[in-house]
Design a protein around this nucleic acid. Sequence first.
DNA 1: TGTTAACTGCTAACGCTGTTAACCTTGCAT
DNA 2: ATGCAAGGTTAACAGCGTTAGCAGTTAACA
Lengths: 238, 238
Amino acid sequence: MVESRRDRLRAATMREISETARRILVDQGPEAVTLRAIARDMGMTAPALYRYFDSHGELLRHLVGDIFTELTEELHRDIKTVPDGDLSGKFLAASRCFRRWSLGHRREYALLFGAPLPGFGHKEQADFAEECARRFGRTFLALFLELWHKRRFPVPPDEEIDPGLREQLRRYRDEALAVDLPLGVIQQFLQCWVRLQGGVSLEVFGHLDFALDDPEPIFELTMIEIGQGLGLEYSPPR
Amino acid sequence: MVESRRDRLRAATMREISETARRILVDQGPEAVTLRAIARDMGMTAPALYRYFDSHGELLRHLVGDIFTELTEELHRDIKTVPDGDLSGKFLAASRCFRRWSLGHRREYALLFGAPLPGFGHKEQADFAEECARRFGRTFLALFLELWHKRRFPVPPDEEIDPGLREQLRRYRDEALAVDLPLGVIQQFLQCWVRLQGGVSLEVFGHLDFALDDPEPIFELTMIEIGQGLGLEYSPPR
DNA sequence: TGTTAACTGCTAACGCTGTTAACCTTGCAT
DNA sequence: ATGCAAGGTTAACAGCGTTAGCAGTTAACA
């Protein structure tokens, strides 16, 4: 049997649950995404949702996966708007897209990148959400590696890397990435990623409000500095 | 009346509430800090806590203030262990202390620097918590300004700063800091702070786990880069 | 000193949460 | 046609924040 009537209904209900959860998240924040609220909005009762998800947490993890996917798609869309030759432009576009999306979806951001909730350890995340997160990560990594292959920005030789770090980088490269690269490239990637996501996190959570109403110029300064390390041509936004 | 018997009892109860809340936070995480749990641990009932705090949220905000104070004290303690002449050492010590405390108090960190909770907007925070947070911020700012006055690291002249940023920096300098400084110093401070806290946040929340078991070397690399911008002498930890 | 008001606790209750158990109807497959 | 599984229901349990109402204790004041 390929596509029974029940299968179709089930898939539709699944979709409706996701959409409803998503809408509540956007409208009322993460703590309002309760089973009862979702069910209420759908004209159902809460226990019925257990036919679709094992627990509240798993429903949230599924939601996380959806959001990661949406973010990743938006990133790819923005990257594609830059002509293929312009790698600097693509890198800038991706970074700015990530920041823009994050600031425009603070509650989703909190769910994806905030403090890990209880029983939500970012480690034992559901396969689905985990895979979505990985694809998100690969988006930036792919850009970075393309940059390395085509432009060869300067990186420290393996021998000059802190021994403790070197071993970790080697493991990550060989086990997770399975590519042939100097370890310095991975180190550089991680440093850039920390600056990018670290800065965005602070902004999203309002931890620069004590001094700035609009931290965009600070973000752009960061982009300039990162770009210098990678030999990129900087061009202002818009 | 200066110090009635009731006043003493009330103060003691206040203290006990704080300590109990704190212990539950450390042992079981932020979501376990419920009014009922606190009351249970104290041999009281939940409604009695309303004699001391208007709501659950306000109790949490008070807890935040306590934690900020504790963190600030630990920072000052560590800074003092470095001889007064060694400003580079003090700066490194403070930064490493912040990172160490954050990694050793992840749940407290989440409360202080995580996503703002509902009705917990980081803006309309209770006066108490707000003041504690300010004193924490001033700890780093003071080090930074001392560094500037004694060592004069290079900063961009006011005219070269992005106009939009310049105006914000001027407001922050004149209204919040009320000091006489080139705006470039403030800009540099904010950039350093973003790198420091941004990196620590990612580490605490486990967002580097996808690649690294121990991100300390990456943190030290950041310290080296920041130090270069400020003309500091780098010395490895321990 | 006696009275009054404020303070500090209690219990009971409301409505919310996630979750489980028991039950009923409906769709699908043998 | 029979039987089983899927997908829904209601009822219930334990926990939560919060409010109302009641009692006892302490402090202040006439």
